[in-house]
């Protein structure tokens, strides 16, 4: 099956909506376990990548700009995981006293 650009954009919008509803479901139902935090971080990474690559049309664009924007949505999800896994250590490293 070969999708045209309009069909791709339509499906990506549907995917973004589905991921958002899934996030809301997780917010209401789940307790903050590693798996749910991992899923939330992954959902953010996927949503960010879709918007950067397809909505902003950076997928085949200037390499540095594309990498900068894509990296943003690797770093924030990574920070979410690090803050969940090592809160005490990060608190210790960022304390003034």
């Amino acid at each position: 099956m070969c999708l045209n650009k309009l069909q791709i954009i339509d499906y990506l919008w549907l995917l973004l909506i589905t991921l958002t509803l899934f996030s809301a479901y997780m917010a209401e139902r789940s307790t903050p376990e590693l798996m749910s935090v991992l899923i939330m971080a992954a959902v953010l990474a996927i949503k960010g990548r879709i918007i950067v690559d397809h909505f902003m049309e950076l997928k085949h664009s200037h390499r540095l700009l594309r990498r900068l924007m894509q990296t943003y949505f690797y770093v924030i999800p990574a920070l979410i995981l690090l803050v969940y896994l090592f809160p005490e250590k990060i608190a210790k490293w960022t304390s003034l006293s």
């Binding site: 958002t20 996030s23 903050p32 939330m40 909505f55 902003m56 924030i76 979410i80």
Partner: peptide, 22 residues
């Protein structure tokens, strides 16, 4: 259009941080 997508990107990051992840 690009500026509007940036505003969208900021919100999709804010939503999980403040409303979802504990």
């Amino acid at each position: 259009a690009l500026y509007w997508h940036m505003i969208d990107l900021a919100w999709i990051t804010i939503f999980p941080l403040l409303y979802v992840i504990r």
